[in-house]
Design a protein around this nucleic acid. Structure first.
Lengths: 357, 357
DNA sequence: CTGAAAGCGCTAACAA
DNA sequence: TTGTTAGCGCTTTCAG
């Protein structure tokens, strides 16, 4: 102990010296690059632990000349819908982690075709990304994919939903049941409510996936608990036919003018904006979900009173930045499962709800 | 054009060569370190522009062995109050910008003493930080401070409030009037309201600073506009005497049992939690501001119905990370003035309102 | 399975 | 006012 070990931050060189190996070997151990004897690994890890060594991310990123590529596997989307917002979050998020020079590689699959999902999985594996973000439309196929990623030593994160028991690095999502209950509260509180119109998309009832079932259940449960005598009327509208939607709503509300509380548990409340605008009713209350641009417009126009959502781009950003941080440091995030806070959006507070990171 | 200028990212070396100067000179120009001829500056900036050069932050941080110190000048606080939350946001934020190795240096001043503020300003200038974050309790003293910082070429940011016309790098705050209006809406909407109790702190009425005046005005304006016949009763309580507070409230509500709508425009709604708990009243509605821990407790206990706030730690984080990013890149943030979104907190959505960055 | 050595792009003395 | 030079701590061939 002769000199300069005051508040010296340990470097890879210190670790190498203390462990009696070369710097390259320490690097191999930290990032699990393989090809190191088990006993050496133990020795090195011990020293890392003892010295409290953490890689200097600046040096690390500088030396490795390539960008960190993170493949994002998400459903195909149309401009303005849920996944389009999430998608922008990934792009903006990657840009923001500027020191990490992270690159996104977006893969879109057709949510109606498991084959298309599998094809994208293959393509991702073949491209050897540094990490992967995926979601959970096809649970079984996702499990297979996860195993292949484990094998290839490619870390992955879940966004929006997750599958228990897999080896994911981090997860960011929301509790849909909580969202449903909150929506029900906002729609009905301070009132005695006897009738609610719950509008659903026709595709909800067909097909395998009903992504908003749990949210809807949360909504309904809350109503049952707090307004036990309230009737919930279900109306189905087609997702892509405005005229038919209009006629359906017109027919329903002509027959049931007493129904003044309206909700949709999916993210498409904007689909009924046109009807609402053309058929104003005093004391009508409308609550929707998710901060799609068109929903916010309906909110600002006063057609929708509340929107329950979580910050979608922020959720994307959290996911990608935590995964990137793991990729760089080799250290697992403090919290593996992270739930987003539910936001209540109203005309009076929708103004600055943007992505500032 | 013989080789490798395909998608080559320009380095400082490219800029230097193209401008016919040394790399060090380019560095001097980018970070405005001074001592460069005006004509050289122009020439270099031109080349930077033309090549679209951006400094590689990893290389930059690696080469400069010191940490970036950001001095934060904020009012003294007690555990749990507004500035204690903001303070934690700075610390956590600095930790999160890990690649940037940012260090905070917190300076606290006594909000009742301009001398104490000036002393901290001196101490900050003497310590030569890379950047400064300050707020605006003593406007004139802040202006002086800003001038000295300009002179010393130390960039600074405002948090919470700002002063127009100064040369700050970035600002994050909220529109207090908007918050007040939103609070008024949440307290009264869906009701005909005839009486509101607005509870204030005694110190509000003395002293120079009344930090919540604008918020209070926003609240009152909204009520005047939407409930023109509503009476607003003002009650003053001492900030540090629970017993006296209790007696004051008891006396008021004994005399005015018809008053069932209650608010405080400052961040201390938790001060009346004890009274509310011990004197339950059906149909009472209480709205407060700011997400202090004790306020959230009162919210979760059902004593307070809504809390209007913005994410305080996030506001701190945004401020410090944007300032740091400027310090590193030398490029001004896209938006200089940034307003935080107002959050509506309710028992049903307070659960995951934490700092995830 | 492990080590040596050559940079990554930048900053900071120092020299001129 | 400007240029030269020696690293920062790490990754990555390439040898062994």
């Amino acid at each position: 102990m002769t000199a300069d070990n005051k508040d010296h931050i340990p470097t890879i060189h210190d670790v190498a010296k203390a462990a009696g190996v070369a710097r390259a070997t320490v690097d191999r151990v930290i990032y699990k690059r393989g090809g190191v004897k088990e006993s050496t690994i133990r020795k090195v890890n011990e020293v890392i632990e003892r010295l409290g060594y953490t890689a200097n991310p600046n040096a690390s990123r500088l030396a490795s000349r390539k960008k960190l590529t993170i493949a994002c596997l998400i459903p195909q989307f149309e401009e303005g819908d849920y996944w389009s917002v999430a998608y922008k979050g990934f792009l903006d998020g990657a840009k923001t982690i500027n020191t990490y020079d992270v690159k996104t590689d977006i893969h879109l699959f057709n949510p109606d075709s498991i084959e298309s999902f599998r094809a994208e999985c293959d393509s991702i594996i073949a491209s050897h990304p540094a990490g992967v973000i995926t979601n959970v439309v096809f649970a079984d196929a996702v499990k297979e994919f996860a195993e292949r990623l484990d094998e290839a030593r490619i870390p992955y994160a879940f966004v929006d939903q997750k599958i228990e028991g897999l080896n994911y690095t981090v997860y960011f999502g929301a509790d849909p049941s909580e969202a449903g209950r909150l929506g029900a509260y906002l729609l009905t509180h301070r009132f005695e409510v006897e009738d609610i119109a719950m509008i659903r998309l026709i595709r909800d009832s067909q097909k395998m996936a009903d992504p908003n079932r749990i949210r809807r259940m949360g909504f309904i449960d809350y109503i049952h608990e707090h307004h036990p005598d309230c009737r919930i009327h279900t109306i189905f509208i087609p997702p892509h036919d405005q005229d038919e939607t209009y006629r359906t709503l017109e027919a329903f509300f002509k027959e049931h003018p007493e129904v003044k509380f309206i909700t949709m548990a999916n993210s498409r409340i904007h689909l009924i904006a046109d009807y609402l605008r053309k058929n104003p009713v005093s004391d009508r209350h409308v609550v929707g979900f998710d901060d799609l641009e068109k929903n916010i417009e309906a909110l600002n126009e006063g057609l929708v009173e509340y929107l329950v959502t979580r910050h979608i781009p922020m959720q994307s950003y959290y996911t990608i930045s935590h995964l990137a941080s793991y990729l760089i440091s080799g250290k697992a995030p403090q919290k593996k499962d992270n739930l987003m806070h539910m936001d209540i959006l109203h005309r009076l507070n929708s103004k600055h709800y943007d992505f500032k990171v």
